[in-house]
Design a protein around this nucleic acid. Structure first.
Lengths: 185, 185
DNA sequence: GGCTCATAGGAACGAACGTACACAACGGCC
DNA sequence: GGCCGTTGTGTACGTTCGTTCCTATGAGCC
């Protein structure tokens, strides 16, 4: 009588689709793209397996949706910073802050970035997401830097992110600031 | 009578182990780490499936051997260039040459680099290979650059490689040269 | 020539995967 | 309240995977 019949999420579950996208990002961040299977995501989101193929036609479609959401968030956050900067010097400092605070401070974002890089190298659908990210990032930088410099800075930033993700001793804020100033100062 | 009985590699096959490592690199370059399965590699090398687990205790061990061989080759080639450079300016030009000629000119090396990055992000055994690569690369740069600059240049190079692998319009030699000189010139 | 052991070969196992599909449940409309 | 179409659920199928294991072979030594 006092049984607990509904151990699973409620039957009627609006917003489940959204939640699945978020959970997918969690799984990718914690276990990598290779481990982001239908079953792993379903387990993490506490929904039945069939629910995934109902909401998303294929696993690739789900992964693309997840990466798109992540890229949107990061790109928007970065552009806000660039928009808020009154001049070039402030923009560079904001970039340092973005790198040392937002990105390098969050292993999750770092891992997601690298996972996206690699997944995009093989999957054309994901490559579009990556290229969108790169072009948005460059556009944000061009608010305060000329096109050529923006491109160089973008490449340096990419390298810094990668180094931080894979190296044991990441660069600190001072070194990053000095490199950026030498490149764009 | 004129049949072709032995379609497979000879029964006695010294050097097969070496050949397997090379074939593994080929498969990774052509189809990615995710597709580098025992069966795919065995097919590509034209050896029976069991041969792989005989020579290598596990798939990870084989992948590590393959990436190690690749990193050794690239790092040695790069250090040769740095050793040959008489001064700092020549070293920078050699670096430009290394990037535009060796690396960016060869999609294979580019792809292998990115695949290694991503595989290393998850597998500790492969991370050791990546870190060895990074430290060797930095040491080669330090033949002509101070430690701090070498580190910055290394990060920029990493970013350039990644951009080239994923972007549709890679930077050309002039832009790379200009960025390097601004950072290290 | 016979023995021995490292190497070669192929079949098999259990697990995990993406996806398909038939059925259950329920909100919205009459 | 009863119908209907959307949404949710659980099972099953076929494939592929890493790995194991048993057998066959032949080169090197006596």
């Amino acid at each position: 009588m006092t049984s607990v019949p509904a151990r699973r999420a409620r039957r009627h579950d609006p917003g489940r689709r959204d939640r699945l996208v978020d959970t997918t990002l969690d799984v990718i961040a914690e276990q990598g793209v290779a481990a982001a299977t239908h079953r792993a995501i379903a387990r993490a989101a506490d929904v039945p397996l069939g629910s995934l193929t109902y909401h998303f036609g294929s696993l690739t479609e789900l992964l693309a949706a997840a990466f798109t959401r992540h890229v949107d968030a990061v790109a928007e956050r970065f552009d806000e910073r660039m928009r808020a900067a009154p001049d070039r010097a402030a923009a560079l400092e904001a970039l340092v802050e973005h790198l040392t605070g937002d990105l390098l401070g969050s292993p999750r974002d770092l891992v997601l970035a690298v996972e996206l890089y690699v997944a995009a190298a093989r999957d054309p659908a994901l490559r579009a997401v990556t290229q969108d990210w790169m072009s948005r990032s460059r556009r944000s930088l061009e608010r305060h830097l000329d096109r050529v410099t923006a491109r160089e800075v973008d490449a340096l930033v990419e390298g810094l992110v990668l180094h931080s993700a894979l190296s044991t001793d990441p660069m600190d804020a001072d070194r990053i600031r000095s490199a950026l100033h030498r490149l764009a100062g």
